[in-house]
Simulated scan of single mutants.
Amino acid sequence: MSGVTTAGLARADNSIVFTTEDYPPYNFKENGVDKGVGYEQVVLMMKDIGIPYSIEMMPWARAIALAENEQMTCVFSTAHIPERDGRFKWVEPLLIDRNIIMSRKGSGIKVGNVDEARHYLAGTQRDDYTQSLLERQGFPRIDLAADLELTIKKLESGRIDLMPVSEKFYHKLVAEGHPLEKQFVLTEQKFAIACNKAMPDDLVTKMQVSLDRLIADGTQARIAAQYGLGPVN
C-alpha cells in the first residue's frame, strides 16, 4: 500500500503515515511492487491492529524528517542509535544487523579497524544513521551525498574510499555484481519503526504487541529467511 504521504491527511482521518526509503532487503520497490523485510512486517502489523495507514517510499532525509516533525507519522526501517533515541517513540526490532566498512574491490585499501580507516575519505548519504556513526567514530573527512545510490557510485568510481553499510545490504550488492569488498565490522544495530513523539502511546503499544506476536510465532524469522537473512536475535 503506498501513495498518501501528507501528515495533513493522516490527522484528518486518524490514520498512520509510514515513510521509508529504497534500501533492500529491508524496504524496496521491485517491478512496481513494494516489498522487504521491514515493509512486510509493517503491513502485517497494521492489518492485525486494524488501524488505517499508508506507506510512501522517498529519499531517506525526507522520510526521517517527516516522522520527526509530523504527528501520526512513523519511519522504517530505522537504526536505533543513541543520537536518535529520544527523538522518537520506538517499535522494535524489525531486524538486528551488523554494519561494516566496505571499499571498492581492487582499490588496494586494507584497513582492519577505525583508527586505520580514519586516514581515508569515507562517504554516506546525508541524515542516514551511518552519518552519525562516522561522526561518533571520529572520521575527520566525511563526504555526504543526497542518496544511497549516489554514494555507491562515488565509491565504485573512486571519488570516496570507504563506505559504512548494512552487512546484509553489502552481500546483496556483491551478489548483484557490484565491485565491492568488506574491510571490517564496525557496529551492530537494531532496525526499528520510529514514530513521532506525539504518537499516542496506545497506538505505539498496539504496534509493539503486534510485532511481538510476529516474532513469537516465527513470522518475522520466516520473512527474513525469504529475503536471505539470518534469524533475528
Rank of each mutant, 00 (worst) to 15 (best):
M1P: 09
S2A: 15
T5P: 01
R11Q: 10
V17N: 10
P25Y: 01
P25R: 04
N27E: 14
N27T: 15
E30P: 01
E30C: 02
Y39T: 10
Y39L: 07
V43Y: 01
M46K: 00
D48V: 04
I51W: 06
P52G: 15
Y53D: 01
E56G: 03
M58G: 01
P59H: 03
W60D: 02
A61P: 00
A61Q: 10
E70F: 03
S77L: 15
E83C: 04
G86D: 13
R98W: 05
I100S: 00
S107R: 00
I109T: 01
Q125L: 11
L134T: 04
R136T: 11
R141M: 10
E149Q: 14
T151V: 09
R159Q: 12
M163F: 14
K168Y: 11
F169P: 02
F169I: 12
Y170N: 08
H171S: 10
H171L: 08
E181A: 04
F184V: 05
F184E: 01
F184L: 02
V185D: 11
L186T: 06
Q189A: 10
N196P: 02
M199G: 02
P200K: 10
T205G: 13
Q208K: 08
Q208I: 06
Q208A: 06
A216P: 01
A221V: 10
I223E: 05
A224Y: 05
Q226D: 15
Y227I: 10
Y227M: 04
P231M: 10
N233Y: 09
